[in-house]
Simulated assay, not measured.
Amino acid sequence: MKIIFTAIMIATLAGCSTGTSTYFAQKDIDSIKKGVTSERSVLSMFGTPTSQSVDSQGNKKYRWDYDYDSGAGDDQVEVKTVDVTINKHGLVDSYDSYLRQ
């Protein structure tokens, strides 16, 4: 019985999220402050980034993507992306977010 329930839950959730990152709310994005918000805070808010790199000045660049498909069969997919750059002092240097549908 547990196996059947688990299989049903996995199939249901698979129809809802196709992204590689955890859902994030607009209020979390709005709470980011340049020069104030720490790297630790950003990682705590958004979880494991979809991708990360370091630029030539040593700044860390993080990206989070979240893809959501309602599963209604209408091919409507919402993609939220947040890009954050952390400076050498461990604080947000810049950030950007956008939504595609």
Rank of each mutant, 00 (worst) to 15 (best):
V36G: 02
G90K: 01
S51R: 13
S53Y: 13
S70F: 06
K27T: 04
A25T: 07
Y23L: 02
V54W: 01
D55R: 11
P49K: 03
D30N: 07
N87T: 13
Q26M: 07
P49T: 09
G73V: 04
I32D: 01
E39W: 04
K33M: 04
Q52M: 10
S53W: 11
K33A: 08
I86R: 01
L43I: 11
N87L: 04
S38H: 02
V36Q: 05
I32Y: 08
V36Y: 10
Y68C: 02
L43E: 07
K34M: 12
S56T: 14
K60C: 06
E39T: 08
S51M: 13
G71R: 12
Y66V: 14
D28G: 00
T37M: 02
S44D: 13
Y23Q: 03
Y62I: 11
D65C: 07
G73K: 14
T48A: 06
V42P: 01
D83E: 14
H89F: 09
V54S: 05
T81H: 12
G71I: 05
S53E: 04
S44C: 07
I29G: 00
K27I: 03
V36A: 04
D65Y: 12
R63N: 08
V77E: 13
A25K: 13
N59T: 12
T85A: 10
N59H: 06
M45W: 10
K34H: 09
K33P: 00
W64P: 03
S38L: 04
L43F: 13
D65M: 14
K88F: 01
D75P: 05
K34A: 05
K33T: 15
V42R: 04
V84A: 09
Y66E: 10
V79A: 15
R40L: 08
V84H: 08
V36L: 14
D55K: 10
F46A: 04
M45K: 09
Y23A: 02
V42N: 00
S56H: 09
D83L: 15
V77H: 13
K80T: 05
R63L: 15
R40N: 05
T37C: 01
K60E: 03
F46K: 06
I29C: 00
D69C: 07
V36K: 12
F24V: 07
H89C: 01
E39C: 06
T85E: 08
S51H: 10
T48N: 04
L43T: 11
V79M: 14
I32W: 08
V77C: 07
E39H: 08
S53Q: 06
Q57N: 13
F46Q: 01
V79S: 11
K34D: 00
G90D: 01
L43A: 03
Y66W: 14
